[in-house]
Design a protein around this nucleic acid. Sequence first.
DNA 1: CGATATGTTGAAAAAAGTCAATGGCAGTGG
DNA 2: CCACTGCCATTGACTTTTTTCAACATATCG
Lengths: 238, 238
Amino acid sequence: MEKLRTCTAWRNNVNCLACDGRENSFFAGISPNAVATLHLDVDNTGFPSDSILYQSGTRAESLWILRTGVVKLIASSWDGEPRIIRILKPGDVAGIEGLLAGQYAHTAITVGTVHACRAPIKAIRQVCLEHAGFQWSLMQKWQSALSETEQWLVDMTSTGASARVRMARLLLLLRDRESNRIHNFSREDLGLMLGTTIETASRIIASFLRERLLVRREADQRFYDADIVRLEMIAQGH
Amino acid sequence: MEKLRTCTAWRNNVNCLACDGRENSFFAGISPNAVATLHLDVDNTGFPSDSILYQSGTRAESLWILRTGVVKLIASSWDGEPRIIRILKPGDVAGIEGLLAGQYAHTAITVGTVHACRAPIKAIRQVCLEHAGFQWSLMQKWQSALSETEQWLVDMTSTGASARVRMARLLLLLRDRESNRIHNFSREDLGLMLGTTIETASRIIASFLRERLLVRREADQRFYDADIVRLEMIAQGH
DNA sequence: CGATATGTTGAAAAAAGTCAATGGCAGTGG
DNA sequence: CCACTGCCATTGACTTTTTTCAACATATCG
């Protein structure tokens, strides 16, 4: 959980306007002028791989707006078994549930290095009261979290679909849409997302590699290149 | 989709204040006086079993606040297979995603007879603009939908947990917390919730009935009485 | 009464889990 | 430098669970 870097240029929000270009920005819904005057201390910090951003059940003091990298959200089932319930990508917000509940509902852990803007929840609540348009854009964050979770539920759960089909669907969701590359998640993480054992996940990935549906990147072994078209065929059930 | 009853007493919102006693009410966040003056046409209508409230992908004109009964939300997976992704109970809101997206993300079908208040989305949007506190309570609706969906994802998906264990967890979530009774869902619906075949669902329920974990109600065959304690033991994995 | 939909049950096949062994790679310390 | 260790991924053999296919029961409704 060691802080790698703190970019003070981001203090006083002089650059918050640039954040993802307004439309997708966390502060969409607030006029540019208003953003600049917000009394908000925002850190843009870097985290090494496997940093714990926050833990389930602890008091929520901050939320994080992801700028680069990937974060996994982990929840525990009835019997305490962990499960990865969502993967956050740039633009997503981690810990947003703390705004309402006052505590975190998941444990958030970085996958690879991550840069994120941390914002204190107290201040965000204040912004909510003062700017109705901001609440509207928060609702959109909630809606997109909901629809992504629903998609996982529908696509990655048993009936009819074999583990192989579900793995193909998962990989397609995990891919970076610009570069078509896919982060090389550990077999354990893949199992936690799909609800299978490590062995099953390993067998399927090994088979995808043999069939050259996935290819390890020469330059950076932490990523695969994917044959999207063939993956999509498998995802449909063939 | 035939309308059973329209209660005109609810027009002009004279009774909206009473709706679930303020706290859980849809209009929590708005002062009682303000609610009374809202320019909102709200129908409190009854629906017979298997009514379609709305269909996925169609233009969203209304949302429904559930007063009695149960509604199932159905989404389609990659290959078009349907899946029940959530069950709405009294106090829940159906079609809320239409507020942002302009169209429905699921198909909503009543399970048994249902009473719900229909509110036009256009008017709700207007209320959003005028009452910041209302947006706050909408966010809570979104958060509760999200956390329920996450719970389904964690508890009702394969790894480690057999179909028998997952069925026990599902039944516990479906139960009415006051009366401990559980709606007798069709085997097909149970399969669509759990991600199993109809046969597997049937075998498990039959076995629960033999073991008297579930007992059909004499008075009303549409419900089971459940042995909660033993169901919880099974849900934990024994 | 037959017709259709829904639920139950059995037997065989397929899928995934479990257990165990092996291989590769990175880091450590002699 | 090299042996040693720990961690992760892979693979095989066997077991368990679930699906599939099929038959049969039960109920409702004209």
